[in-house]
Amino acid sequence: MSSDRSGSDRLVPDRLIPDRLVPDRFGRDDALADAARDDHVDDGPSSSRRTVVTAAAVAAGATALAVLARGYGTYRAERDAAYARVDPDEHRVAHTPVGDVEHRERGSGTPVLVSHGIVGGCDQAMRVGSALVDDARIVAPSRFGYLGSTIPTYPSPSTQARAFAGLLDDRGVDDTVVVGTSAGAPAAIRFALAFPERTRGLVLLAAATPSDRERDGPTGPPTPLLRDPVFWLLRSRAPRLLRRLFGVSRGDWQRAAPADRDRVDALLDTLFPVAPRRAGVAVDADFTNLHVVDHADDYDPADVAVPTLVVHAEDDPLADFSDAARFADRTPNGVLRAYETGGHLVFGHGDDVREHVTAFVRDPDGYVAGTAPRSATS
């Protein structure tokens, strides 16, 4: 098992993240200048896949420039409204031993801590938690580098788990159900492993789980995409393309119930503004998503003693289904809820997912004991 240097708690973000990726506290991207500028520096080995993605990102930036030249007023108004939604004055900050954790909290009942995915934040975590479970106390932190959360020297998922524990201490929460989505799953798994006495249950949704396969291509969006104008363009002018990146086809979208469409729209709204999330994206792309593969032994499902519910779509283009299924199968108290379609957002199954996650949150042990067979597919 690999060592974890999570004991290094001094906060020095610039040792890990280049200064150009750390925005001023909610300093806005300049629309036209940033759309045109390519400040991407890639010192690592290149690949054809990375080259294609980067070229597409640069093209998107150029397109954004042209669109903004015609509709800058609209962009500016929607940008300012987006920044108002993530105003730091509207969030709480917990001062933990490994740094500041910005968070939101809502509701009452069983505590549910949500570890959000890449290009997320406490706003996304709250959206996910509210969509997943009824009658719960949602604790929604921003992970390292997202919005107002700081970055420690060694931002491993284990260190992030310690930050979660510090947040729960601050909020007076003894134990919780932990939900990990996408790139937020490694920290959720590490929390369950490090603090089993504080973990009522573990839910992994479209999760990045340990894999025995070699890494292939980039592990996060290329830097040229991480511009407010580009993300605004995708969200407001090319939503079908944005949904497609998450595995939602045009046909699935047209056939879906309005409630499922609303859930996806609400979630995608949390991707913008992107500037206050860039440092967190860099942590995930350069550290989190690599760590769960390169140090898979640190996430051994056989060591996860708490009740575990894994929810995953078989056609997920971003998080491999076979890895998730294997994790559920090897977890002593694990259950897999699988769907043939849905992509990375498990789209089209919102009501069913909510029903099962809510039942699990209310009684994790009872849910696992009463679910037969262990792997259910819809």
Rank of each mutant, 00 (worst) to 15 (best):
Y154W: 12
S47A: 15
D284R: 04
E105V: 15
R243I: 11
D228K: 07
R213P: 06
L267Q: 13
G44M: 14
H356S: 03
L336K: 06
H40Y: 14
R277C: 09
S46E: 11
A183H: 04
L233W: 09
P332Y: 02
T153P: 03
F272P: 02
E214R: 13
A324M: 07
V98S: 06
D42S: 14
R127I: 14
L225T: 05
A163F: 05
G370L: 03
L147Q: 07
V304I: 09
A359G: 07
D320F: 10
V112C: 05
V22N: 07
R104C: 09
V346R: 00
L147I: 13
G73V: 12
D89F: 11
V346K: 00
Y367W: 08
F360P: 00
T51Q: 10
A359N: 08
A165Q: 07
G172V: 07
I17Y: 01
P332C: 12
V248N: 01
F195V: 10
V293N: 02
A207K: 04
L226S: 01
P186W: 08
F360G: 01
V310C: 03
S8W: 15
S130L: 14
V368I: 13
Q124A: 06
R79D: 05
G107Q: 01
A62R: 15
D298G: 14
R70W: 05
R374K: 13
V304D: 00
V292R: 01
P273C: 05
A94Q: 02
D38A: 08
G343D: 06
L267F: 13
G217Y: 12
V368K: 01
R25I: 10
A259G: 08
L32R: 10
L290H: 15
E314W: 12
R244A: 13
D298K: 04
D87K: 13
D24W: 11
R235F: 08
I17Q: 00
L226R: 02
P13L: 07
V22M: 06
S182I: 05
E355M: 15
D329A: 15
F360C: 04
A206V: 10
A319S: 11
P273M: 02
S142P: 14
V178T: 06
V133I: 09
V310Q: 00
R227P: 03
T153M: 08
P218I: 14
A183F: 04
Y72M: 12
V292Q: 02
E340G: 13
A165Y: 03
S142D: 08
T63H: 10
F287Y: 12
P332K: 08
A81W: 07
A163I: 09
R106L: 13
V22R: 10
L290N: 11
C122H: 09
L168E: 00
Q124D: 06
R227H: 11
V274N: 00
V203S: 00
P317M: 04
D100F: 06
P276W: 01
R261G: 13
T331E: 00
A59T: 15
T331P: 01
Y299T: 08
D297C: 11
R235H: 15
R278Q: 02
V293T: 12
P276R: 03
A285I: 08
G247T: 12
R85E: 15
